[in-house]
Simulated assay, not measured.
Amino acid sequence: MSTPEERLAGLGLTLPEVVAPLAAYVPAVRTGNYVYTSGQLPMVDGKLGVTGKVGAEVDPELAREQARICALNALAAVASVAGGLSNIVRVVKVVGFVASAPDFTGQPGVVNGASELLGEVLGEAGRHARSAVGVAVLPLDAPVEVELIAEVG
């Protein structure tokens, strides 16, 4: 059986550096056997590559890819306080926020990008409860933001 790190490498991905907070908070907090992440934007190398509302300026498939980046950033935040990806016992809950055009109703499909990445990296431990929420705007005009709760060992 492969480790989460090996599965991540098999996807051609590496765990990024934890994204620096944009305001007065920390990226992740561990309490007991749980880690709560702050909302993670689709930042790559400290930059937001895509901005705008899904269903208007941002195509839903592109937003789905951005949700994968958010999930990868969330995994980095969890790993930073849990001692690595292999210490994740299970992803318990994911909340995805999608900056949506007024008539866009495909939020679950966008957030599937995050959910699918978690499953690919963590296997059964990546299956989780989830909410996909449409919002008017997100920080820095990001199209998507993802936060999660993980049980860790």
Results as ranks from 00 to 15, higher is better:
5 E>W: 12
6 E>V: 12
7 R>D: 05
13 L>H: 05
17 E>F: 12
20 A>N: 10
21 P>M: 04
22 L>T: 06
24 A>S: 09
28 A>K: 00
30 R>I: 00
31 T>A: 09
32 G>L: 06
35 V>E: 03
35 V>T: 04
36 Y>M: 08
36 Y>N: 07
37 T>V: 07
39 G>R: 02
40 Q>E: 07
41 L>Q: 01
41 L>K: 01
42 P>F: 01
43 M>I: 13
44 V>F: 05
45 D>P: 08
46 G>Y: 11
47 K>S: 15
49 G>M: 10
51 T>M: 08
52 G>P: 04
53 K>D: 07
53 K>P: 03
56 A>N: 13
57 E>K: 14
58 V>Y: 02
58 V>P: 03
59 D>V: 15
61 E>F: 15
62 L>W: 14
62 L>R: 14
62 L>N: 14
62 L>T: 15
63 A>V: 12
65 E>P: 03
67 A>S: 11
72 L>E: 02
75 L>G: 08
75 L>D: 02
76 A>L: 06
78 V>T: 04
78 V>P: 00
87 N>V: 11
88 I>T: 09
94 V>G: 06
97 F>C: 13
101 A>H: 06
102 P>H: 08
103 D>W: 13
104 F>D: 03
106 G>D: 07
109 G>R: 05
109 G>P: 02
109 G>E: 04
110 V>R: 00
111 V>D: 00
111 V>Y: 00
113 G>N: 05
113 G>V: 03
114 A>K: 00
116 E>F: 13
117 L>Q: 00
117 L>R: 01
118 L>H: 01
119 G>V: 08
119 G>A: 10
119 G>L: 06
121 V>R: 01
123 G>E: 05
125 A>K: 04
125 A>H: 03
125 A>M: 11
128 H>A: 12
129 A>I: 07
131 S>G: 08
133 V>D: 01
133 V>H: 03
134 G>C: 11
135 V>L: 08
135 V>K: 06
135 V>E: 09
135 V>H: 02
140 L>W: 10
141 D>T: 09
142 A>R: 02
144 V>N: 00
145 E>Y: 03
145 E>M: 03
146 V>S: 01
147 E>L: 13
147 E>Y: 13
149 I>W: 10
150 A>E: 00
151 E>R: 14
151 E>C: 14
